[in-house]
Write a protein that binds this DNA or RNA. Structure first.
Lengths: 109, 109
DNA sequence: TATTTACATCGCAATATTACGATATTAAAA
DNA sequence: TTTTAATATCGTAATATTGCGATGTAAATA
């Protein structure tokens, strides 16, 4: 136990859930918002901005990179992180497909 | 360790993240989709549909109820679950506010 | 009333996540 | 070349999550 039974769900459900899971942490929301506001930033900016240890920030950045929503480019001794606009738009569509559907309810409820 | 440091984030960030976290599991996505398609359902329907143990489904329903996105009404010996349209719309707005913002990127990236 | 049905909750084992110090790596600066 | 700066990764402790069997509860049925 402790393992999600991914075999029993549709690929689309697993995919959507795993994206939402990555976004389901306040540090990663804060990181995304900061990157969006600043257009780009380096890891150290986030360490100072959020007050988490460097190792922790680095780990969160790794997870965001893993789903493709941000990308990092080496710039001297630091790494410049920014949103991958193409992926961001893909996600927008994916999320809109789920959240912006109309919902009807049985009379009984 | 192992605890998310919620104190360091803005309320809005914590709130958005906690909603996304609940949605970040394929069983809960599948449950929501099923409820939406059927307009309403009972716990046992989901046990058969998804093939998870009754205790497991009940637990996922509890988490969805906790964020208000579904509501359950007792109907004899079963409980009828359906989407809370009001809350669903609130969440739509909340998510759209985050996901549907325009994103610019520094030239360097 | 005894039984069945539909759920919720408890307790637990397996696993995953979060956070961080320590350490490695690589490039700039002294 | 030594030092400094910016990251990434490793290892680990604390905690959270997932899934399920067992059990409790309440309503319907026999």
């Amino acid at each position: 136990m402790g393992v999600t039974k991914t075999e029993i769900y549709k690929d689309e459900q697993n995919k959507l859930a795993s994206l939402l899971k990555v976004l389901g942490h306040p540090a990663r929301i804060a990181i995304l918002q900061y990157i969006i506001n600043q257009k780009a930033c380096i890891c150290n900016d986030l360490v100072e901005e959020l007050g988490l240890a460097q190792a922790t920030i680095s780990q969160h950045l790794k997870e965001l990179k893993a789903i493709g929503i941000i990308q990092g480019s080496i710039e001297g001794k630091s790494v410049c992180y920014c949103i991958d606009e193409k992926v961001w738009k893909q996600f927008q569509e994916e999320f809109n497909g789920f959240f912006n559907q109309d919902v009807n309810v049985k009379q009984c409820c």
